[in-house]
Simulated scan of single mutants.
Amino acid sequence: MQARVNWAFAEICDRAANVAEVQAAFMREIRDLGFTHAACASHVDPLKPPAEAVMMVDYPQAWLERFSAKNYATRDPVFRAARRQTLPFQWSDQNFRRGLAPDQLRILNEAAEAGLADGITIPIHAPDALPASCSLVIGADGVDPLNAQKATWYGVYAHECARRLRLADLPAKPQLSPRERECVQLLGQGKDDGAMAIILGLSEHTVHNIVRRAMHKYGVVSRVQAFVRALKDGQIRLEDVAT
Rank of each mutant, 00 (worst) to 15 (best):
L108T: 05
D141T: 12
L186D: 04
I198R: 12
Q189V: 07
D58K: 04
L146V: 04
C134N: 07
E21R: 09
L100Q: 08
Q94L: 13
E180C: 06
G115P: 02
A132G: 01
K150M: 12
A16F: 06
L238I: 14
R4F: 14
W153I: 12
F227A: 09
E239G: 00
V241G: 11
C183Y: 01
P174M: 05
L105H: 13
W153Y: 14
R212L: 13
I124R: 06
P60D: 10
V228I: 13
I198D: 09
D14N: 15
E65C: 08
Q85W: 02
P49I: 08
A111D: 05
D93C: 06
P88K: 06
K150Q: 12
T74L: 14
G119M: 05
K150F: 04
V19I: 12
V184D: 03
D32N: 11
H37N: 09
A111Q: 10
T86L: 14
R84Y: 00
V57C: 13
A230R: 03
D193Y: 11
A114M: 11
L64V: 02
G142N: 03
Q175I: 14
Q185L: 15
V54H: 04
F227Y: 15
D169G: 11
S222Y: 05
L186Y: 08
L176P: 02
A168D: 15
Q94W: 10
D192P: 04
P77H: 02
S222R: 12
A39E: 08
R179Q: 14
R229V: 14
R106T: 15
A53H: 07
P102F: 07
D76G: 03
Q235C: 09
H216D: 13
R83P: 00
R213D: 13
N18M: 15
P50V: 08
C134Y: 08
G188I: 08
A230H: 03
R106A: 15
A24S: 15
I210H: 13
W153K: 01
E182G: 02
P60A: 09
P127D: 03
S133D: 09
I236W: 01
V221Q: 14
R164W: 07
I120T: 09
D169Y: 04
